[in-house]
């Protein structure tokens, strides 16, 4: 391997560079500001924007949560409609609508709305997320699906019910876990 002077020179250079690299890594201060902030802080930025989103959703939807607590379900739906005007694509509205419809006993509508919410934001079935709503979704699925199957047995080929059933299967699959 080291047959001539040039080989030895290269090897010495290699050892030296490795030593310098090791020294740099060992002695470098663990301070993100010394390096490119954008790269080093990416995880922190992601976490901050996520936390900001949670805080925003909590604040913006607080009136709905209060109304749900008071059992004012029709008013909660109207408030959700009002919020949807400002935040048209925000699926947190669909999640809360699912909750309202579940409390109203409208299981089909609850399944449909929850499926829309989970499709867009899987955090709702993630037990590690502050947005976790597995308990609610599990309750809707376990109550709604047997009813739905019975109705489909009575009306085979009803495409509207089949679509809701598909939403239910989707939620079941997400609740069961697995890779995304």
């Amino acid at each position: 391997m080291f047959q001539d002077r040039f080989d030895r020179l290269l090897f010495a250079g290699l050892l030296l560079t490795v030593a310098v690299l090791a020294g740099l890594l060992i002695t470098a201060p663990i301070d993100a500001s010394h390096v490119s902030g954008r790269v080093m802080d990416r995880q922190l930025e992601q976490e901050m924007s996520y936390q900001a989103r949670i805080a925003f959703l909590t604040r913006r939807y607080q009136p709905v949560i209060v109304q749900l607590g008071q059992g004012a379900l029709p008013e909660a739906l109207l408030t959700l409609e009002e919020i949807s005007r400002d935040l048209p694509g925000e699926v947190h509205s669909d999640l809360l609508r699912g909750d309202v419809f579940f409390r109203m006993g409208q299981l089909d509508r609850a399944l449909t709305n929850l499926a829309v919410a989970v499709r867009q934001n899987p955090d709702y079935v993630d037990s590690a997320s502050p947005l976790n709503q597995r308990q609610l979704i599990d309750a809707v699925v376990s109550q709604g699906m047997p009813q739905l199957r019975d109705r489909l047995r009575a009306q085979p080929g009803n495409r509207s019910l089949e679509q809701v059933l598909k939403d239910g299967y989707y939620l079941q699959s997400r609740l069961a876990g697995g890779c995304e």
Partner: peptide, 24 residues
Amino acid sequence: PVLDLEIMTREGKISANDFRVLAQ
């Protein structure tokens, strides 16, 4: 009708806070 309340709220003609629902 609940649907009209919903539509008028969506269109900004009324606010969800303007009314109380006595019964549905």
